[in-house]
Design a protein around this nucleic acid. Structure first.
Lengths: 145, 145
DNA sequence: ATCGTTGCAAAAGATTTGCAACTTC
DNA sequence: GAAGTTGCAAATCTTTTGCAACGAT
């Protein structure tokens, strides 16, 4: 049977190893993240949960998202304005984003070479537990006109 | 005569074309930025100005930094926590940072290959006026112990 | 004298935290 | 019933804005 979710964790405990209780709220957040494609802010996700009467508080949304980031189940970026955005990691391969300054349109790009380079550089300086963030900004074809 | 400042704009009007008045406060901010090496937050810079009794308000620090970013005279990044950091563009060559999660220690690293790659990727998607940000995070040798 | 600039205080936003009530195991 | 979770309200923190006073040209 094909895995429609792209292999994404289905259950709360699967997604959040650092957690002991299995709650309705966490399941709701997971379910929502499974449905949406792009990056959304915690506030946006909370609004969506309100809209579907999921009964999940904003605080819990923040806390759950943080757990998921820690567990590596979701990616997070930051908007130029400082707002944090979250999104399900759809591909096993790590990737980056090409973001339009004007309309916010996002294109995913893979950069295996960059990954390796970052790891090497960090290792050279004795850093461990390494991660990185890379965003490319520009004006997309739509917004140039 | 050698240019000690690394060719960095010396005067207010030089640094901020989009400005008409030449004020003491702006000169103070410029002077400070000329002296500090690494990234600092607006708040940190303001503290330094207080320490040297420069008489520049926090609001003005923010406004001046924004003018300088717009003018392309300083770089800005964002910490994982969302705080914005500013730094004089000291080198013509673009480079990135390896930052310790715990102590904040920063190592500059050059990545010419990454630059080229980012430009290519963006061009492939028809994006123009391209820039990028790349930060590598990890735990530095000091903080591992 | 004009009009850009400053800086205080207040507003605006996003995110975090204290804590009592409530679930899950 | 013990311990993890929730969610409200309040706190925190960074950054922005209104506006009257100020200062550069």
């Amino acid at each position: 049977m094909p895995d429609i979710t792209g292999g994404w964790a289905d259950t709360v405990k699967q997604a959040m190893p650092n957690v002991t209780r299995n709650t309705r709220q966490r399941a709701e957040v997971l379910a929502l993240l499974r449905e949406v494609e792009d990056f959304h802010s915690a506030q946006q996700l909370h609004q969506m949960l309100l809209a579907r009467k999921a009964g999940v508080g904003l605080t819990t949304v923040y806390r759950t998202l943080q757990l998921l980031v820690d567990a590596g189940e979701i990616d997070s970026t930051r908007l130029p304005g400082g707002e944090q955005l979250f999104r399900r990691c759809s591909q096993s391969k790590h990737h980056h984003h090409l973001v339009c300054r004007d309309c916010g349109r996002t294109v995913e790009v893979a950069g295996p070479a960059v990954e390796r380079w970052a790891g090497q550089v960090a290792a050279q300086h004795g850093f461990v537990d390494v991660g990185h963030t890379l965003e490319i900004f520009g004006t997309c074809p739509e917004c140039v006109r």
